[in-house]
Amino acid sequence: MSIHVEVREIGGLTLDAAEALAFVDATGNGAGALFIGVVRNLNQGRKVRGVSYDVFAPLAEQGFTEICAEAKQKWGEDLRLFVAHAKGRLDVGGISIVLAAGSPHRGEAFAACRYLIEEIKTRSPIWKQEHYVDGDSEWVKGHALCSHG
């Protein structure tokens, strides 16, 4: 398999960049591109303590697979792709998503990695609830999904 997609429950193994790079490695590859999404301590002027990720996992994983297939169609079937998104609560500094693309050439690896994150952010059934230092919590306003019809 040249694609790995996963929604990972926090409390099990944390997301791991080394695991992603190892998966996309291949003897024919000259490039590996990596993207890591991390919980930051400030959003729109509010101090953030952590973020909870809610995920409709079956549909999310199917969507990740479709997005990977699109990337391979655009930048080559020899791409190796890794997608893992966290589900559950993360503190500031926690890794929410790890993406990696391995390819014979850097251009395709960078482009595919960028494509994965941009598409996942707007198409995947994942929701972020921010927890603030003042004790308040709020669901982040996001992107409305499109249906097939």
Partner: peptide, 10 residues
Amino acid sequence: LAILPPVSGG
């Protein structure tokens, strides 16, 4: 079924 409000993953 699932209800999917606007998404904010990543």
